[in-house]
Design a protein around this nucleic acid. Structure first.
Lengths: 202, 202
DNA sequence: CCTACCGATCGGTAGG
DNA sequence: CCTACCGATCGGTAGG
């Protein structure tokens, strides 16, 4: 132990930045889970002792908070403009689904941590990210609502069920798609959009 | 501490059974998470000291293994017969989705642990439940495949994407539905089936 | 950025 | 089913 372990996973051994610690933690949290990773693991990954991490970061939870926040913001900045366009709701929904898959394919680690591990946060940090999640949800709520008002979506539709179904599909399919990569992100996005908007039956 | 704490959450204080321990753990795991719950919490819940739990159960992980196994089996026993019926694939898919929601509404705690916390298992236990998950997935894979062969589902469809979308929608919507209960389970199941099979646009 | 260490807590066991 | 305790590990701090 000692030197050999501390350098594991690092190609060089210059001074360590806060960003390097966040991205090491991002990698570890996404491959394992927040509770399974210790500060000593993060220290090993960047090549310093766990105690030394605290001159760059405040706490373990603060790291997770930033990762989750950034992970959700990646979606908000891309999806808000789509929500606010003038296109018909069905088109906006297709675009939003495809864009979601695009963001997911570019930020797979942020995504899996942001959507699955925010539960390990507590107190103010949890309240903060729940607010961000609500903002994310409201984008799809708005589009579905518009679609019903336009008369484009079936009228008897349970709007809340539709929103839950869309977000559930997007959130959960992430893990599997990233693992399998059976088609390109663009094709996968088109397929998901077609299923939700047009249905399976022809 | 002591007596008062040990009796917390229990209406009486007879001898403790293994089943009582499993159901106390089920409740705690579903409300919090496997890693956040200690053996001392489970002991408190059933009214005995944590060390005494081990005369009824083997280990903490064994408890989770059984809960996850039972949770997935609840779905397998209900969905396999639907997969094997002679009805058209679109009808079977609608039935399977509605039945899934029905099982979920009857076993919400098992469901949330089985579908979200199996990752805390390792070794043989993990391999075992991954096999059960695969069995569950294959039910929907089969129905989707049948639908494409029948010519009932759109031909250019990415079958794998369809299966991922369906399961993702069902798995993730569980948490939210149980929390919100905005409509009856039957209505919610009908809505999800309509969205996937018929699509949002009319 | 290190060594050394804190108090707390973990799953699990021994012995009765 | 209890008390008492095990070795390990946790996030985080002190002092240099």
């Amino acid at each position: 132990m000692g030197i050999g372990k501390r350098d594991a996973g690092r190609g060089f051994s210059g001074p360590v930045s806060a960003d390097a610690i966040y991205s090491a933690a991002l990698d570890l949290f996404s491959r394992h889970s927040f509770s399974a990773i210790g500060m000593r693991d993060i220290g090993d990954q960047v090549g310093i002792r766990s105690g030394s991490l605290y001159s760059h970061i405040g706490s373990k939870e603060e790291i997770l908070h930033r990762i989750v926040r950034d992970g959700i913001n990646n979606y908000l900045v891309e999806l808000r403009p789509i929500r606010d366009q003038d296109d018909p709701a069905a088109d906006r929904l297709r675009q939003a689904i495809r864009r979601h898959v695009d963001v997911m394919s570019r930020t797979p680690n942020h995504t899996s941590v942001a959507f699955h591990q925010w539960q390990f946060l507590g107190g103010d940090a949890k309240r903060d990210v729940v607010q961000l999640r609500d903002d994310y949800e409201s984008i799809f709520s708005k589009i579905v609502e518009d679609g019903v008002h336009e008369g484009a979506f079936r009228a008897l539709l349970d709007q809340r069920a539709a929103v839950i179904a869309i977000i559930g599909m997007l959130t959960f399919s992430c893990e599997w798609y990233v693992r399998e990569q059976h088609v390109s992100p663009d094709e996968f996005g088109r397929s998901l959009a077609a299923i939700v908007v047009d249905g399976l039956v022809r």
